[in-house]
């Protein structure tokens, strides 16, 4: 542990959907290895009988009332206001499916 190869960085960047340039891969590999090497110090702490802490509020399963508060909702215009790539009241997204159309040519 404690070292991220260029291959590790490429893998992690792919998982995180983060486009990286070649020179960045090298730079991040060095910097991230140094950080991961530092945090390895936690292995000094005996945690064999310790429960993990996920949050500090002590609250559990907080749910809101199952009721629509209209003033807390965005209308369609507001919801679309952050994007220029809209079409007929929808967001335009990149295509995720590739390849031949089924059913052949018509």
């Amino acid at each position: 542990m404690g070292k991220l190869s260029k291959k590790d960085v490429e893998h992690v960047a792919k998982l995180a959907n983060l486009p990286l340039k070649e020179n960045e891969i090298e730079k991040f590999s060095k910097q991230l290895s140094k950080i991961v090497g530092y945090v390895d110090e936690l292995n000094e702490v005996d945690t064999s009988k310790i429960e993990p802490t996920h949050q500090t509020t002590g609250l559990q399963s907080v749910v809101r009332k199952d009721k629509v508060e209209i003033e807390d909702c965005l209308n369609q215009k507001e919801a679309l206001s952050g994007s220029e790539k809209v079409h007929n009241g929808y967001f335009v997204v990149p295509a995720i499916l590739e390849g031949k159309r089924r059913g052949g040519k018509k």
């Binding site: 936690l42 702490v45 945690t47 310790i50 993990p52 802490t53 996920h54």
Partner: peptide, 9 residues
Amino acid sequence: LKAQKVRTK
């Protein structure tokens, strides 16, 4: 997970 346990400590 290790970090969350040391967090408890």
